[in-house]
Design a protein around this nucleic acid. Structure first.
Lengths: 230, 230
DNA sequence: CGGCATCCGGGAAGATACTG
DNA sequence: CAGTATCTTCCCGGATGCCG
């Protein structure tokens, strides 16, 4: 019914973008699609393979994950990399610029924590809870503490290095950490944000703490959620 | 037709949400829809009416704007308010919690400014450019400066209060400001980020500067875009 | 004119099945 | 395990039209 095709090159090429020079608009053009920021979040503590991403992002479908990974790679936020033999598996790893998106994840998360509608009973991934610790830590309470905190969620293990300046978290073996938290992400959440005692969590098979228990207890006091907005 | 229609109650209860306790996921459930953050941005410096939003968000359809405003109101991010007579016009105004989303807009904007694909030649709204000034100001360069900077973009006028602590910007009459920038948003961008001299901008009808020209020149040196990521 | 409902076309997202 | 292929559903964008 439209007489003549539009033939406006700039318009046919234009998919669903905000035609706006504003930085926010451009950011949304880059990472505003559904699932894009969630994918970045899952890669924020280190490379992952396709199947790990799929299982840590409940609800994403394979084709959408494929598409997001392609777009994010093309835009320079992540790269595909082959692990050295014998593994040889392909993983997705953030670029430097991709890692620089962590403040975005933190700012959004901290803001949303004030939402009265926030349902903390839902599923949460290992990376999510660890990033929330990085976000919600009150460095003033750390003092001169310097400790290595291990986390074990099934196969996924992480080690956090707590200093006066920051809580660094990398994916590595927690065997030599000062204290090890082992269980499910909700167990960490309950201990840190819900002040649930370790014994109760152990009884529910949510969390097991080994190593320096005094340090563990102290660790759980370093974090605080912001108050609800209303 | 409306009566007795399917209502899809069985499955539609869960729309298109991330079923995830992560703060990021909840944030995206609240403001992750298309145009939502752009609407928040436009309201960030004060209430606006429907038609103002529509004209400052080129590309949004009335349909979608209505829907976003409803959702954001229902979620507690903005309220509808009637201006006192004689205007009596209805405006949309952010709640306290809504204004607290400014760090989100800033973080996304600052991050995207590093993108090599960022096209600064596109249209930009008054609120966008003013928020970018708040984002990109280098307070260390302000020293003990204390000045009132006026901005006039057609009908929309703003006054920025520059102090050592912050650049506050509110929508008000710039008549008494120390210096007034008048023109189009791109004119401000060219002067501040492109170091284009005032004379050149005046010749192109992009910007006219009145008042304390020394202050104006100094003002344009306070802002710096981050380097490109690659 | 401002605000909102409705219809329609296109395209992105979701679900499932399938393949190397 | 790491993705395709296909089909369906739903959201977005544009146009029209109602109503205060």
């Amino acid at each position: 019914m439209k007489s003549g095709n539009i033939t406006n090159g700039s318009k046919t090429a234009a998919k669903r973008r905000y035609d706006d020079a504003c930085g926010l608009a451009h950011a949304l053009d880059l990472i505003g699609e559904r699932w894009a920021l969630m994918v970045l979040r899952e890669l924020m503590l280190g490379p992952k393979r396709f199947s790990e991403l799929r299982s840590d992002l409940p609800g994403i479908s394979a084709n959408v994950l494929t598409q997001r990974l392609e777009e994010l790679e093309q835009r320079g936020l992540l790269v595909r990399r082959k692990l050295p033999p014998p593994s040889g598996a392909q993983v997705y790893e953030l670029t430097t610029w991709g890692y620089e998106a962590e403040p975005i994840v933190q700012t959004l998360g901290r803001w949303a924590a004030r939402s009265p509608a926030h349902d903390t009973s839902l599923q949460i991934s290992p990376v999510s809870i660890l990033l929330s610790l990085r976000t919600m830590i009150d460095l003033a309470k750390v003092g001169d503490l310097d400790a290595r905190i291990g986390f074990r969620f099934g196969d996924e293990t992480y080690v956090g290095h707590l200093t006066a300046d920051a809580l660094d978290i990398v994916r590595s073996d927690p065997a030599t950490a000062d204290v090890i938290f082992e269980g499910i992400p909700q167990g960490i959440a309950a201990a840190v944000y819900g002040d649930v005692p370790f014994e109760a969590l152990a009884a529910q098979n949510m969390l097991r703490v080994t190593g320096d228990l005094t340090l563990a207890k102290r660790f759980t006091t370093l974090f605080e959620l912001p108050p609800k907005a209303f």
